[in-house]
Write a protein that binds this DNA or RNA. Structure first.
Lengths: 259, 259
DNA sequence: CAAATACTTCGGTCAAGACCGTAGTGTTTC
DNA sequence: GAAACACTACGGTCTTGACCGAAGTATTTG
């Protein structure tokens, strides 16, 4: 009856490490198969199957069968929103050990966040756009100025697609930088543009983005920001999952047994 | 290293029914004592103590000692945001049994949501303001028009306080109505105004609001909406906690033993 | 100081559920 | 049709942690 139990049920679902890993892996809007999710979550396929059933039943995941595999994705942007929120809270939480992330340098630098860009680069872009008065941003509302509109026009970013049903512009608190970057239609359009013009590329099996040489140049001329990651930034993400193929051995070696 | 475990930790914390009840009780921004929280969560004080320690350690709750009691409140609006998000997801979740809440009629009608109003009334107000073009609202950004500004001026709602650090206007998805109401400084100002002019009153020990006769009249003239709740709406919320005093007996009778 | 209040610590019980091995069912490939 | 593959169902083990009774530490009241 009370509202507590309901949110507890959902939160408990997210509160298992294996399931949280699955959801995290889906946060950029991709769809992954049950096997892939078993792999990233570090559990055996049987176990993963159970988890996925629960998540689907609860409406956190949407399921599409295709031949002998099942593709999962987050059921709605609301779910992504909650996950982002949890990250923010998790970051600000234990005030003591707020060490800003060894490892994950690539992720901190640039990554996708559901359908837009996040990380150091994204925050820098948002900063620049605000500083130039192209966008007015307060804690959770944003709007484009006329100057901004022509800026994006000249850049060749098409904002017309978006306007209707979609949020036009909103800030999204970056959990690694703890400052806002741009989400909404504008954020999505920027990411599209960046991918299309090879400013950035997806890193395989991750939501990390790498800035290409083209990107470094263009980010500098367009936004006056340094696109290259710091030199010491190297982190190899987990194993292979080579070519979408998951061998039993790979699963075995990735699974550390009981947690 | 990965982000999964971090969000799992926070989510697991929220995922316990007792703790979720505590957090829910704090969602309107009140501060409550450990005993009160033990009561609303339906567990013994010893158990509650443990829960509260965990929530504080994790940075979800802020703690203020005062004499022999300890006052708890949500540590940040981000926490409230996550809880709201979980409610939304919990509502949209099990697509099957989306029965819109027996009981909690009062809550569905009008309640506080952290620092602004929510529920049927709040959604109606938002609708009206949008319909009159006093506010432009898309899915998660909002802004006041000039007409809107003078509307609030005439009404005597002071919006100047807010502008600086605070979000000015944003929509907040109402988990009972599943449509947006107004949050941000504007939302807060409206709630302030409504409370100050006796349009609504807090219901004891709950975040429910009741619309007064004055409120019914004023809501009709100001917004053209029906402020009275449906006739069949009766739900008695839990027990007493009379006058801030929690007797051992009250705790006993409210505690249903093992869950 | 004694009694009452507010909260915490400790210890032991108990249920929930995460995990995997084994053994299935569907689907595709050869 | 046989073999490989993707996923699911079942059964048993084992850890985690929620719970409360009893006892202990601060703080206020009389």
């Amino acid at each position: 009856m009370d509202t507590g139990p309901k949110i507890a049920q959902v939160a408990a679902l997210i509160g298992d490490p294996a399931r949280a890993n699955m959801l995290s892996a889906l946060m950029d809007g991709r769809t992954l198969t049950a096997s892939e999710l078993a792999y990233v979550s570090g559990v055996a396929p049987q176990t993963a199957s159970g988890h996925l059933a629960k998540l689907s039943d609860a409406g956190l995941l949407a399921l599409a069968k295709q031949g002998r595999r099942r593709y999962f994705r987050l059921a709605s942007p609301h779910v992504a929103r909650v996950l982002e929120g949890l990250m923010v809270v998790a970051q600000e939480g234990p005030a003591r050990q707020r060490n800003l992330w060894r490892g994950g340098e690539t992720l901190r630098h640039a990554r996708t966040c559901y359908d837009h860009m996040a990380g150091r680069i994204a925050v820098a872009i948002a900063d620049r756009l605000v500083q130039q008065s192209f966008i007015l941003l307060d804690e959770d509302g944003g709007q484009l100025t006329d100057a901004g509109r022509s800026f994006f026009d000249e850049l060749g970013v098409d904002l017309r697609l978006a306007s209707k049903r979609r949020v036009f512009c909103r800030p999204c608190l970056d959990w690694s930088e703890r400052r806002p970057h741009l989400a909404g239609a504008v954020g999505a359009a920027i990411l599209d543009h960046a991918l299309e013009h090879d400013w950035v590329e997806h890193v395989r099996d991750s939501r990390a983005l790498v800035v290409t040489p083209v990107g470094v140049r263009e980010l500098a001329t367009t936004f006056g920001i340094e696109g290259a990651p710091p030199m010491d930034g190297h982190d190899r993400r987990v194993g292979s999952l080579s070519g979408g193929r998951v061998s039993a051995i790979a699963v075995e070696s990735a699974s550390p047994g009981r947690r």
